[in-house]
Design a protein around this nucleic acid. Structure first.
Length: 228
DNA sequence: TACCAGGAGAAAA
DNA sequence: TTTTCTCATGGT
């Protein structure tokens, strides 16, 4: 289903067939990826904040420094001063802001009774609560819900917007929730599919130009001369 | 040297 | 309500 460029509404109602065709094309190109990288639910949550507007390679450095300092835990992060935490996550960029955001997230988890208590919450209630944490926007929230808590919430990022635009399925400026709900309605609640789909989109964005320098529709790299 | 990367919140218009 | 600005390191 192609969108009507003259229709200025916030609607995004793709067909399941269109979205699955893109998924199958990406799956065929990159295979079944083990994604998101992270050894624990807590590490995934921390990584979701650290990766905000930042390349994952820089996040890996920051996570490595947290591990080396034995600081990758709720208790240790809350015990560190903001300056100490900022120094450890420096490679991820925006370290002062992210140090505050990590502490906000850890305080929220602690006040909620821990990860296990959060895991018992119903998905909509959990999403509302996580979104209310200062420094956690919709993408970071949904990274956490999908990959850390395994809830059927589709993650929308800048790559996903470009992908939809290049395939002519969306304008690309629709609201976050319009795009998220469009995926969820078309695909049905499927945690494993959502995880794999988002992972493939990101993988494609990182490698497409090298693999298919002449691709016209799907290459997501900003540096690609075909980008829209 | 300049641009970009798995955003989010505050300030300004 | 919408747009613009700010935060910042590391790779290309």
């Amino acid at each position: 289903m192609l969108y009507d460029p003259l229709m200025r509404s916030d609607r995004f109602q793709p067909s399941s067939a269109d979205l699955m065709a893109i998924y199958q094309a990406l799956l065929g190109a990159y295979g079944d990826l083990a994604w998101w990288p992270g050894d624990s639910r807590f590490e995934i949550m921390i990584g979701a904040v650290l990766t905000q507007n930042t390349a994952w390679t820089n996040v890996e450095k920051a996570l490595g420094q947290l591990k080396a300092a034995d600081a990758l835990s709720l208790e240790r992060i809350l015990a560190l001063s903001e300056a100490e935490l900022a120094a450890l996550i420096r490679p991820s960029g925006y370290f002062n802001i992210k140090a505050d955001r990590l502490k906000q997230l850890c305080r929220f988890v602690q006040q909620a009774g821990g990860e296990a208590a959060l895991a018992r919450r119903e998905t909509t209630e959990l999403r509302t609560a996580v979104l209310a944490v200062k420094g956690v926007g919709p993408e970071t929230c949904d990274d956490i819900l999908l990959y850390a808590f395994e809830r059927p919430v589709f993650v929308i990022d800048a790559y996903t917007r470009r992908l939809l635009k290049r395939y002519g399925l969306a304008r690309g400026d629709e609201s976050y929730d319009a795009l998220r709900l469009g995926f969820e309605r078309a695909l049905g609640p499927d945690v494993d599919l959502y995880k794999a789909y988002h992972g493939l989109i990101v993988e494609h964005a990182k490698t497409a130009c090298a693999v298919k320098p002449r691709c016209r529709q799907c290459c997501l790299a900003v540096s690609c001369p075909q980008r829209l």
